[in-house]
Write a protein that binds this DNA or RNA. Structure first.
Length: 268
DNA sequence: CGTGGGACCTGAACGC
DNA sequence: TGCGTTCAGGTCCCAC
């Protein structure tokens, strides 16, 4: 599911409901979601602590619990929302955090890929993640990208290079930049590199403005769908006309990810 | 260093 | 209706 725009939308939607609240307990029906930490340990660490902030870094969500952190990754089908009940409002809730207003922050995840991790700081995210794309300058983007011979799509999906771009927004930004997904990064001119950086920022910001893409599982914390999927130009449009030029969109596989591109707008 | 395959999981969509 | 296959917004680990 969630790429940067979806995660950002979740964080913004949840913030007013959790920041300032005190944790009173935690619940799970599938302990593996806690990534090896026993529920009792999570509960003991968080109980009585006040939520000082909720932040996004790449596709990760960090809940600052005033001295320790709960780091949440939604992976493919994770959702977060407030519920009146610990077990949440759907059959796929596997973790929830009880707050002092009697409500629960529920983590629902049908595929069980998502994780909720207790940790003492967010430093490990800084070690593994590249910079945030939305605030990345042209010069810094050019610096990051130089030298690599990898396919450009594989490169921009690498979270250690740039944090937050996923399969949808990779395809969308490459179309808008007019770059074939298999183009080796070191074959991109300065101008096209700059264009790609600009289009990545643009598709991610548009995605946030449309509150994320609800293709299948993703929902905003209020339960409603995002609108971003209504604005895709190539993603999921195999055999349909490219929204820029009308040519039939093709589907291929790049780095084991389904990849949509326009053979006319994006020549190798 | 880089890539390909598989693992982790479940549900939806589609073909027969 | 039911069964089998394929695909899915992500990441990690291992072999080559």
């Amino acid at each position: 599911m969630p790429e940067l725009p979806e995660v950002e939308t979740v964080v913004r939607g949840l913030r007013p409901d959790v920041v300032g609240r005190t944790v009173t307990g935690a619940w799970t029906d599938w302990p593996r979601v806690l990534d090896g930490t026993p529920l009792a340990e999570v509960t003991a660490a968080l109980k009585g602590r006040t939520v000082a902030g909720l932040v996004r870094r790449g596709k990760y969500i960090g809940m600052d619990c005033d001295g320790c952190y709960l780091v949440i990754h939604l992976r493919m089908t994770g959702r977060l929302y407030m519920s009146e009940r610990p077990e949440g409002d759907d059959r796929w809730v596997h973790f929830s955090l009880a707050l002092d207003d009697g409500r629960h922050m529920a983590f629902s995840d049908s595929r069980k890929f998502g994780r909720v991790t207790l940790c003492s700081s967010l430093d490990f995210l800084e070690e593994k993640l590249g910079p945030e794309p939305l605030t990345l300058s042209d010069a810094d983007f050019a610096n990051i990208i130089q030298g690599s011979s990898r396919a450009v799509k594989t490169f921009i999906l690498d979270q250690s290079k740039i944090a937050g771009v996923g399969n949808i927004y990779a395809d969308e930004s490459l179309l808008r930049a007019g770059i074939h997904p298999l183009t080796p990064v070191n074959k991109l001119s300065k101008a096209r590199t700059r264009k790609l950086g600009a289009e990545i920022r643009r598709v991610l910001q548009d995605g946030i403005d449309h509150e994320g893409a609800s293709i299948s599982w993703y929902r905003k914390p209020d339960g409603n769908k995002g609108e971003s999927q209504q604005h895709f130009l190539v993603y999921g449009r195999t055999d349909l006309p490219c929204k820029l030029c009308g040519t039939a969109v093709q589907r291929t596989v790049v780095g084991q990810r389904g990849t949509h591109f326009c053979p006319k707008c994006q020549r190798l």
